[in-house]
Every structure is written in C-alpha cells, then in structure tokens.
Simulated scan of single mutants.
Amino acid sequence: MKLFGRAPTARLDGATMAVRCDGARPPAGSTVIVFGADGRARRQAAKDDQAVKCRDGESAWCCQAGPYALELVPFPAAPEMGLRLECVIAAPDPLSDSQRFDLFLFSEGGDALTVAAFATLAQGALRGALAAALLELPPCTSLDEWNAFRAGLNELVYTRFGVTVTDCLPVDLGDTVDYAAVLRARAAAIVPPVAPVIPVPAPQPVPMHVPDDASALRRLFLELPALSAQLRLLALPDGAFAAHRDLLQRLALAALAVNTMPALALAAPGVPLHATMRERRAAASAAALAALDEAWGVLAVMKGGGFDAARDDAERVVANLGYALARRRLVAPERTEPVL
C-alpha cells in the first residue's frame, strides 16, 4: 500500500544504466551522483529508504555498476560481423577529483541512460575510430592484431565514456540481420541522377527545423576543459613540449570561443539572423561536436601509445574544431559562397 507523501522509487533494471532520481528513492546498492550548479559531481551510496535531496540548481542520477552486455557492429557494410562486449561502469579514480562517467552522464545522459542508447553511442565511437584509422580491425585478424585492437577499444571506451570493457568476443549476427531491409536502405541512399531544372512556382514558407544547437554547445562547454586536463597529464617524449603546448593553447582558445558564442538566432543584440545563416550555424555546431568526439578517440590513442602515436591526428582534429567554431560565429555568408 502506498503511503501518503512517500517519495517514489527510481527504477533501475538490466536495460537501464542510470536514471534521474531528484527527490526519489534510489534502489538499494546503487550509486548516487549529484551534480551541482557549477557542474561538479559528488558520489554517494544510496541510503536505505531515503529520497535524494538536492539543493537549488543541483540534479541527481543513480546508477548501478553492471555488468552490461552490448552488441556492436563495427562496419556498416558488414552487418553480420559483430562484437559482443561486457562492460561495467568504472570505479572512481582516487587520483582524480572528477570521473569521466560522471561527465558523460551530465553531458549526454538525459533523464535516463539505457543500455541500448549507450550501445549506439559506443558503436558510433568505434566506427569513428576505425574510419579515422585510430583503431584497426583487418580481415583475418591475427592474435597480435586482435590484442592491439582490444587494448585500443578498452582505452577508447574508458576515455570516451568512463566505462570499463571486461570482455569482448567476435560474434556472427547473420541470423539477426534483415538483409532485405539493409538492401532497401542502401538503395534509398543512392542519389538519383540530376534531372533538368524546370522552373516551378516558389514554395510557401514553412517552419524551419533547426538542429539542436544548444545541446551541442553545452557538450563543448562541459567537455573541452576535461579533454584539455587529460591531455595535459600525458607523458611527453623528448622534443614534444612545443607541440603539446600548442595543442593546449588551441584547445583553450576553442573553449573561450564556446564560452563567448553568440546566440543562434541573433546577428547582433536585437537583430535577428537570417534563417539560412541559422541553419549554417547549427551545422557548424554539429561539425564542432563531431570534432570533439573524434578528439576523445585521439586522446585514447595517445594514452595507450604515447603522445607521438597520434600527434598528426590531434593537430587535424583541433584544426577542424577551430574552423567549425569560427563558422558558428558567422553572421553573413563567406565570400566564396553565393549570397542567398
């Protein structure tokens, strides 16, 4: 029987890794992560039958360590080739005052982080690392190549999400793949030949769908300082000090650009921005976010193989990040683009 005034219980099951629990009672044995208004996190054990109390500006999540089972498809062109991962939320690092999983949860978790949603994010990170040659998984992989891939994958998932991979096995997903649906999707993605241009009446204006620019900037605001802090802790080989300092300075300028970014819909105070430029600004934010995700992968390679293992990739990613943020500030089309 439900008692009057009794706080609800936050629900965590095998399909959910973490869930918001502001004012709710977390499940027994779970870990509570409370985020302050300044974005700093503190962890505490769930207390028996007691609701989580948050002060003004605070928010709270509860999570369970796992283990969780994931099935990932590394290559879109080979949907039958899969990886089955077993992972757990990493234990707190006593040498750090902030935990990577806490930052991931606060930055990307939303109201609930399901295992399926996390698997999608982990699969995207893995595919991005393979496409950028930060990881290698060749056909007929030898044992040494598999061990190198496993080490890189472990570091990638830990660096990007704060989650520890405890087991990884190749699996055949052929029985679960709908090949007809795959072929239909590939056919739909083929660009048809360009037809002759026929003048038609101008369409009526319709409400513009703007991508979520605010969430992209929020992630950049939260994660760029943490990325810089981890890059600063890398051990450097001889002669790499100048390159390391240059990367840190460019990341600091990128963080400053994010902190002073103009509003999406304004060209100046009180002056609305043209709809076309709002779309381009939102696209630039998405490009900057893609560079941030790739930067975490590059950092994972550096943590595993040293600073020189991915120095060129780091410079490329930071350059792409700076370029995208510069485009996000534009109020008029670039000179090389036609004026609409």
Rank of each mutant, 00 (worst) to 15 (best):
K2I: 13
L3W: 09
F4R: 14
G14K: 04
T16R: 13
C21K: 08
V32W: 04
I33Q: 10
F35N: 09
A37D: 11
G39Q: 11
A45H: 11
A45I: 01
D49I: 02
A51H: 06
K53Q: 12
E58L: 04
C63W: 15
Q64I: 01
Q64Y: 09
A65N: 03
G66S: 10
E71I: 15
L72P: 12
V73P: 07
A78D: 08
P94T: 00
S96G: 01
S98A: 08
F101V: 00
F106I: 05
S107P: 10
G109V: 03
T114E: 02
T114S: 14
A119N: 05
A119I: 04
L121W: 07
L126H: 11
A129V: 03
A131H: 13
A131D: 15
L137I: 11
S142I: 03
E145W: 06
W146S: 07
T159G: 03
R160K: 09
V165A: 03
V165C: 02
T166V: 04
L169P: 01
P170W: 07
G174E: 09
D175E: 14
R186V: 00
A187Q: 12
V191A: 08
V191W: 00
P193M: 01
V194Y: 01
I198P: 00
P199N: 02
V200L: 11
D212I: 03
A214H: 02
L217R: 11
L220D: 09
F221W: 11
A226N: 09
L233Q: 15
L233S: 13
A235F: 06
A242R: 09
H244Y: 05
R245N: 12
L247H: 05
L247Y: 02
L248F: 07
Q249L: 14
Q249C: 06
A252Q: 12
L253C: 08
L256F: 08
P262Q: 06
P262N: 07
A263F: 10
P269H: 06
V271K: 07
T276Y: 11
M277E: 14
A282C: 10
S285F: 11
A295K: 00
A295G: 06
V298P: 05
V318K: 01
A319V: 07
L321D: 02
Y323T: 10
Y323M: 09
A332E: 05
P333A: 12
R335G: 13
T336A: 13
T336W: 15
T336H: 14
V339D: 12
L340N: 12
